[in-house]
């Protein structure tokens, strides 16, 4: 057995990431009791958006410390993070995934393809996510960096609060 590797970078960096992260933590704490679950959906991306989404869980960004979690089950998800230009061949699977999510729920269109900036509507693709799913938040970028994704999630949490109509998700008296 060898010594564990020395990992100085695991310490939290004091940067803009921290400030954005603090705002996000407060908002989610208030609305979702430190438990917002995200399901990702690839509707024809080039795999770069997926790589950036995976980086959200990496030590530099560490989504979990903010009370955000990825879930493989749409039935456990509050938020659908959609990448790609919504290919026609995939639209049915996308609708089924969305329908399986409980309300209140959000759709976040992620990356230039999802926003309609790469593919025109044509025989292959709807051209953008909003042609098929009701999009609440758009995150630009090709691909959006993890910091841009965090900022988009922050906006999305605010929208979720509006959609829930002031309904409290935290029992009275709890932190």
């Amino acid at each position: 057995m060898t010594a564990a590797p020395d990992l100085p970078h695991l310490a939290t960096p004091a940067t803009a990431e921290t400030a954005a992260a603090d705002d996000l933590r407060r908002a989610i704490n208030r609305q979702f009791g430190r438990s917002l679950h995200i399901r990702t959906l690839d509707t024809g991306s080039c795999a770069a958006c997926e790589q950036e989404i995976r980086m959200l869980a990496a030590p530099h960004y560490d989504l979990h410390r903010l009370g955000l979690f990825f879930t493989p089950a749409p039935r456990h998800a509050d938020l659908l993070l959609v990448t790609g230009p919504m290919l026609r061949a995939f639209a049915t699977a996308a609708r089924k995934t969305y329908d399986a999510m409980p309300a209140p729920k959000l759709v976040v269109a992620t990356g230039a393809c999802a926003l309609g900036g790469v593919y025109q509507p044509d025989a292959f693709s709807h051209g953008s996510v909003e042609q098929v799913l009701p999009v609440d938040v758009w995150i630009p970028g090709c691909p959006p960096s993890p910091l841009a994704l965090l900022q988009g999630l922050l906006v999305a949490v605010g929208r979720l609060a509006e959609q829930a109509g002031g309904q409290s998700f935290v029992a009275a008296g709890s932190a």
Binding site: I38, R39, T40, L41, D42, T43, G44, S45, A47, E50, I53, R54, A57, F70, T71, P72, P74, F90, A93, T97
Partner: peptide, 10 residues
Amino acid sequence: GPVRQVGVES
């Protein structure tokens, strides 16, 4: 699939 693990392609 095609919707499978989180953060991976379909």
